[in-house]
Design a protein around this nucleic acid. Structure first.
Lengths: 202, 202
DNA sequence: GTCTATATCGCGATAGAC
DNA sequence: GTCTATCGCGATATAGAC
């Protein structure tokens, strides 16, 4: 289906990787259904027919973008959490890494969030399954922090999860790399807001 | 362009209103570009050609859904805020009303957030202008609460605005009316979280 | 691995009767 | 205000040479 990424040597990017990258860029700007294989091919300096040497169908691009993006976030978040010793620090690592990866892969991430509805039923279910698995990780991390007594327990962990993901994911829609905020600064802001809220300290 | 809504007598819904309602429903599920005039017409018990008695182009549907939705939210939020005497209560009214209207008009609201990119440049600019005007209202309300000393002042009002809107708007994507949470309960949850955060009380 | 040329199809939109 | 019939276009995808 899609090969494991080769170890990151400094090999030149494969045509397939460039294809996925340009497609994600195009999808975020114009939407999956509003993007044409012509334009994507043109971005690579190819004619549209040449794409079909690398993929079977246009939908393959969307499917692999979604799966790749989820896999990358999950992998990097898990790795960051692994190094954190306490439940609160694990959640902190999750928040910072989620924002950092989500904005580094902003095209793919926004495409995942916006265009999942254009996948076939079968593929959409597959992507949702991975998404739910990741969301379960977030929820378990929040739940552990509640059990440790560092997060309030009067809000169900599932609800805290949805609110946290809203806070974090929304940035994929409006964030502009040229703006004043780095992903790191934004992650710090989200963490501050999620934990302590907006009320004035007394 | 689009007539003012007639006063809400108990008149039967006009074909035009049904059309906008069904179109928004279809757009949320399948996306604007993934929805066909055929299917929308079929939902109304019409043939596709009959739609063109009510609109000029398919895009008109998207445009009016977006404008209607923004106008409704702005109108209802302003009305709710008008009755609130303090800056904090004004922000509270904004949050509760935004959530309530956003979920009552969930199809249109999700369409606005997801499918604005499919509008022509000119119309997208018009919708963005109205969106920015509403966002300015949110920001001014937050800023006033900061000046009154009830919200923390170490986070710029623009950043608090983006975080609040992420928290609120995300619900348009996952909220299910059949679920356990009413819009009112969800609004209360968001308010609690936005103000006080998730940290355990000491 | 990329090209030219083409097949095929479904879409939005129109014409004109009723 | 809705219908039947049809147009015309641009999209994905394929065939086969290079």
């Amino acid at each position: 289906m899609h090969a494991l990424p080769e170890a990151d040597h400094d090999e030149p990017e494969s045509t397939r990787q460039r294809l996925l990258r340009e497609a994600a860029h195009e999808f975020r700007r114009k939407g999956y259904a509003g993007s044409t294989t012509r334009e994507i091919a043109a971005k690579l300096g190819l004619k549209k027919a040449s794409l079909y040497h690398h993929i079977d169908k246009k939908e393959d691009l969307l499917y692999e973008i979604c799966l790749d993006c989820l896999a990358t976030i999950q992998r990097e978040v898990e790795r960051a959490m692994y190094a954190a010793p306490t439940p609160l620090e694990r959640l902190h690592a999750l928040v910072l890494t989620h924002v950092q990866v989500g904005l580094r892969e902003q095209d793919g991430f926004a495409t995942l969030l916006l265009d999942i509805r254009y996948l076939s039923d079968e593929r959409r279910a597959k992507v949702m399954q991975r998404h739910d698995a990741y969301q379960a990780l977030v929820r378990a991390t929040i739940s552990a922090a509640q059990s440790a007594g560092v997060l309030r327990q009067d809000i169900a962990p599932g609800n805290l999860t949805l609110m946290l993901l809203g806070l974090l994911n929304w940035s994929a829609f409006w964030y502009q790399p040229a703006g004043p905020l780095t992903p790191e600064a934004l992650g710090a802001l989200f963490w501050q807001q999620f934990l302590n809220g907006a009320v004035a300290p007394m």
